[in-house]
Amino acid sequence: MNAVSPDENVVRAICDDKWDGERLSPSLFKGEHVSVGRLTIASLADHWEIFRRFVEDPPERNLKLVGEINVGVLQKLGREYNPVPVALTVIPTPLVGFPSHAEIPQYITRGLANRILRVLEIHEHE
């Protein structure tokens, strides 16, 4: 499947294991196969509902925030990251009930995850 266009914006669910009300955990983006949702397929409001169904497991795990980033910005951060630049891509991986699902397959280091957090636009539920 073709990679998501750099013009698109994607969103990441932020649950209480990665947000304590004061600070965000960089492990939100650290690692490989990071799950995101595409805003061209489903709206931000729809993603709140979708995320609740998919990420609130166990039920005591609560969705607290949604972080948004542009794919082109994400790729630029990867390309310019020293000492190890990485060519980040976002690959559509639609799921039943979550058609906007996509993944960042490459490994993201803690340092790069910190750079991503700095530009992440945070949405609180209205």
Binding site: A13, D16, D17, D20, S35, V55, D57, P58, E60, R61
Partner: peptide
């Protein structure tokens, strides 16, 4: 806050939690 979070992680987050 930290004490409560540790309890939360230990008792509720069983294997295969999350998406």
């Amino acid at each position: 806050r930290g004490w409560g979070r540790m309890h939360h992680f230990r008792y509720y987050y069983q294997p295969r939690w999350g998406e």
